[in-house]
Amino acid sequence: MSQPNLLTPPAHISPQSALHLSQKAPLILSKPPTSSLPWPLSLLSSSESPETWTTYENLFYTCLQTGDDASARQILSFFSNRFSETNERVIVLRGLYEELQARNKVELEAVLKKYNQLISEDPTRFLVRKRKVAVLKSLEEMEEAIGECVRLVEESPTDVEGWAELGELYKSQNLFPQAIYCLEEVLLSCPNSWGAHATLATLHHLSSSSAPTPSIPSLTLSLRHFCRSIELNDSYLRGFYGLKVLSSELIPLLQNYNPSSRRNQHNDEEDVAPPKLETVKKLEELATGKLGEIVRRYGAGDNGWTGYEESEIAAARKLLDKEGKVVR
């Protein structure tokens, strides 16, 4: 695993790496990125590079995470000097700073009020509207957050990030059919995203396990999406993990499955034909083999196999150990 990087930070910044990254702030901030000279001369002496502002933005996020408010404020002033106060992204960064300064609910609601005002001034400020959803979420007003997010994707239906967020909001409320719908919308825009397929598969699986009896159509759909995710990425640990869990759940169900009794029921999901028992068994074997390989080669530190998350490997190892197979 390589060191976390300010230019292309990982999705999950652990506290340790956040501390490590934010400690770079004094060094990076010691030199202002823009020149102090008047306009034509400033073009010559500027030290900006295409990566500069990405670095600053990421540094801003980690500084906020570690509570280094002085550095965050300094970066914010760099941003507003360079891109003006009215730039939407600068507005959002300032809002983020204020959100983290809020010490209690009342102060956070004041930030929310400010967002509301900004949105009513210009309803096309989608970045601000996203922040509003996030604030509502941290105020734990899930219903309002969902409502705001629904309005967001209604007005901007190609916003995949918004659909993904809405799906997760629904999932947190155990509204799986709605969450599945949102993830299907994500797939419309990103059909090649293995992560979206795996998430959709997980949602189908959850909707089946939350029902009183396991539903074979849901599990079948889940299996299909997991298969698609590993078709798109043939070293995808999460996909193989899901495939293994799913197939070991499906095998006993399919063994007692009577196709003739199914015809009497008339569900919407009726057209989802369950997979053959042999196919599922083969898939389970495949998943076990591949998970074993990933865990073994990651453990051995083989070249080109070290990009996985430690926690994911641990989970896969646990799953394999449960079966009594010794991997190492």
């Binding site: 293995w194 990425n233 070293s235 995808y236 080109g304 196999w305 070290t306 990009g307 996985y308």
Partner: peptide, 8 residues
Amino acid sequence: SSSLSRSG
């Protein structure tokens, strides 16, 4: 994509 997930 598998080379991305394997080696980061």
